[in-house]
Design a protein around this nucleic acid. Structure first.
Length: 196
DNA sequence: TTCCAGATCTTA
DNA sequence: AAGATCTGGAAC
């Protein structure tokens, strides 16, 4: 299980390094194939830009804490707090897509029997498949043996950096990270995606 | 492939 | 009162 030191690094580094690792959520497991970085400094799309409550959350919690919120009134979105040091390297990583590897029957039940490819392809679908909601907000992802992130046996995939999805502010930043060639991402890489 | 409703929270 | 890190279904 990854410890707090993994999350004591800047959002861009964490978001990139999470690609290819395994998210373990009770009996449900999945390989992380898509993330986005959000920075507390210089990023108007980060909740810290407009929300005092999020700035307070960042101050009061340790790296590796889950940050979960409701979007568009109906989708839970699952992030992890990262603190790269000094306050100017802090932020969040949003989990956007998984390649499901275990507990697929359970995920299908929660997802209305979606196809395997659509089970966790998208931040709202991912939380629905895993049963993540407000109860997970503030939970330490480094503190249990059953809910967190582990190294994967399979080799690290090639990683691409592309524009983030669905945002209007700071939309030009290439802070979405994807496993190249994975069919389990929510939106495939565009022509301007950069190899890392 | 494109469009749009749906439902709730936070902030201004 | 406005806008939001989205999804599924319907219309083309």
């Amino acid at each position: 299980m990854l410890g707090p030191s993994f999350f004591a690094r800047p959002p861009l580094v964490c978001a990139r390094d999470l690609i290819g690792l395994d998210l373990v959520w009770g009996p449900c497991h999945g390989r992380i194939v898509e993330t986005e970085a959000y920075s507390a400094i210089g990023d108007e799309a980060c909740h810290t830009f407009s929300r005092k409550s999020t700035r307070d959350f960042l101050k009061r919690h340790t790296p590796g804490t889950a940050y979960v919120y409701l979007n568009y009134g109906m989708h839970w979105l699952f992030n992890v707090l990262v603190k790269g040091g000094g306050g100017d390297q802090d932020g969040f990583v949003l989990f956007r897509a998984l390649e499901p590897t275990a507990g697929l029957a359970r995920m299908r039940r929660r997802r209305g029997n979606a196809t395997d490819r659509a089970l966790c392809a998208g931040p709202g679908r991912l939380t629905q498949a895993l049963g993540i909601d407000e109860r997970v907000h503030g939970r330490d992802l480094c503190g249990s043996g059953t809910h967190g992130i582990v190294e994967s046996k399979s080799p690290k995939p090639a990683v691409l950096a592309d524009l983030r999805i669905g945002i209007t502010r700071s939309a030009e930043l290439p802070w979405r990270f994807l496993a190249a060639d994975s069919p389990f991402v929510s939106v495939r890489a565009t022509a301007r995606a950069q190899k890392l």
